[in-house]
């Protein structure tokens, strides 16, 4: 692995007045430029992990290093400049009176000169397809449009790490494809590290690596194809069963012998074609 941009060692956390740990003894490295998916059912601790990395919560024990610096109350503000977070429900993160101001907020905070700021805001809004809404009130946008604006706010900051916490869940299928395409190009061409916390199997399949969190512990850390082989157990990990696996299960109920290994949808089409040709 390249120099890790995030290095988490023996991290544990419990919410106040809760006996049970939300996360216990997590060890995880994320390489610079990697695309990592984090999956787990609701309440498994995924979002807690994201908040710890961004310093929104303070660990009880263990350490987090971001870009070589250990996260502490004094380094927190510098570390956050490396991280852009997009939450599931963007209502919780809007501050501007209109879309443009909202996207500019983070840049103003970092003291980016005005000319540069205007350029970056415009570019970010174009990249998420929301330039026409620059003067609109964030509160009056649809759920999907809000998620786009929240992402624009993060893109404008040009952080090295983007953490998406279920951040495409409200988009329509096409919007989702556009946004994922955008993230892919930021990841590939600009080298942004992407951590995507998701329940969406297609989104998880784009990752180089998938981490499964269950009841606060890291239970699997592997390539998507390996993780997807878990079949029905994936439901307990907060993902749906991949479509090809569902179809295999249905075919099995008709006593058709299907391959054991995980097949992508394309793989499944090929297999079916072969199967038909042999008949």
């Amino acid at each position: 692995m390249q120099e890790p941009i995030i290095e988490i060692s023996d991290l544990s956390f419990a919410y106040p007045q809760q006996q049970k740990k939300a996360l216990s003894h997590i060890n995880l490295k994320v390489a610079a430029g990697e695309w990592l998916a984090v999956i787990g059912h609701n309440g498994s601790g995924k979002s807690t992990l994201a908040k710890l990395i961004d310093g929104l919560l303070t660990p009880q024990s263990g350490t987090i290093r971001v870009a070589g610096t250990e996260l502490t109350p004094t380094t927190l503000w510098d570390i956050r400049k490396n991280i852009g977070m997009v939450f599931q429900n963007p209502d919780n993160q809007f501050v501007g009176a209109n879309v443009e101001e909202d996207v500019a907020f983070g840049l103003e905070n970092q003291g980016v000169p005005r000319n540069e700021m205007l350029k970056r805001v415009k570019k970010a809004l174009v990249s998420v397809g929301m330039l026409n809404f620059a003067q609109h009130e964030p509160a009056r946008l649809s759920g999907g449009q809000k998620q786009r604006v929240a992402l624009a706010g993060v893109i404008a900051l040009q952080p090295r790490i983007i953490i998406m916490d279920e951040a495409t869940s409200m988009l329509d299928p096409e919007g989702r494809r556009d946004i994922i395409q955008l993230l892919k190009s930021l990841n590939k061409e600009k080298g942004f590290t992407v951590i995507s916390i998701t329940h969406d199997i297609e989104e998880a399949s784009l990752a180089q690596r998938v981490v499964v969190i269950d009841d606060g512990t890291l239970v699997q850390n592997d390539k998507p194809a390996k993780v997807f082989q878990r079949g029905t157990a994936l439901i307990e990990s907060g993902l749906d069963i991949p479509f090809s696996e569902k179809l295999k299960n249905e075919l099995k109920s008709y006593r058709i012998a299907v391959p054991q290994e995980y097949l992508t949808e394309k793989g499944m089409v090929d297999w079916l074609c072969q199967f038909i040709s042999k008949k």
């Binding site: 059912h41 609701n42 599931q88 429900n89 279920e166 329940h199 439901i235 307990e236 907060g238 993902l239």
Partner: peptide, 11 residues
């Protein structure tokens, strides 16, 4: 209105 947004597939 999008009643399952934010829930995991099981939920």
């Amino acid at each position: 209105d999008e009643p399952t947004a934010g829930l995991d597939p099981k939920g």
